[in-house]
Lab assay of single mutants.
Amino acid sequence: TTYYDVLGVKPNATQEELKKAYRKLALKYHPDKNPNEGEKFKQISQAYEVLSDAKKRELYDKGGE
């Protein structure tokens, strides 16, 4: 599973699309609303952290993490 899959976006997604997808999923899986989905929330946050940063995203796209 790639970070793009976690957020449900395509690899060519814009920053705005990433932000929108992250917010939607973060609300859905937030531990306050969904106590059993803490791990999913962490995955979503990690994916967004990497993909929202241009340098980290470039490194990730080249095969790094």
Rank of each mutant, 00 (worst) to 15 (best):
D32C: 12
E65I: 15
K10L: 11
A47E: 02
A13N: 01
L7S: 00
P31T: 07
K56V: 05
L27A: 15
L51R: 00
A47N: 01
Y3L: 13
D61W: 02
L51A: 01
E39I: 09
L59M: 10
K56L: 15
S45F: 12
P31V: 06
F41T: 02
G8C: 07
K55L: 13
G64R: 12
F41Y: 09
G64H: 15
K40D: 06
Q15E: 11
K42F: 08
Y60N: 02
K62Y: 07
S52G: 10
G8P: 00
R23S: 14
E49D: 11
L18S: 00
K62G: 08
Y29I: 04
T2P: 04
P11Q: 09
I44N: 00
V9M: 05
Y60D: 02
E65R: 02
T1D: 09
E65H: 14
G63Q: 14
D61L: 03
H30G: 13
Y29M: 05
A13R: 00
D61M: 03
Y3P: 03
Y22H: 03
Y22Q: 03
A21T: 04
I44Y: 03
E16A: 11
E49I: 10
K19P: 00
A54S: 09
H30V: 04
K10D: 07
Y60A: 02
T14R: 04
Y60W: 02
A54W: 08
K24N: 13
L51F: 01
R57A: 03
Y4C: 01
G64A: 14
E16D: 11
L51K: 00
L59F: 08
K56H: 07
E16S: 09
P31W: 05
N36C: 12
V6Y: 06
K33Y: 14
K42V: 08
L18N: 00
D61R: 01
E37A: 13
D53M: 02
E39A: 12
N36K: 10
K62N: 11
Q43K: 10
K19R: 12
R57E: 03
Y48E: 00
G63Y: 15
E37F: 12
N36E: 13
E39M: 08
K55E: 13
E37M: 13
H30T: 06
E17G: 05
D32A: 12
P35Y: 06
G38M: 14
A47R: 00
E49V: 07
R23M: 15
D61Y: 01
Q43I: 12
G38C: 12
N34A: 10
D61V: 02
L27Q: 14
Y22W: 08
K20E: 15
Y29K: 02
T1M: 13
G38L: 14
Q43R: 09
K28D: 07
L25N: 04
V9W: 00
G8E: 09
K55I: 15
P35E: 07
K19D: 15
G63L: 15
Y60S: 02
E58T: 05
T1L: 14
T2C: 11
N34L: 08
V50W: 04
P31K: 06
S45A: 12
I44L: 10
A26W: 15
D32K: 11
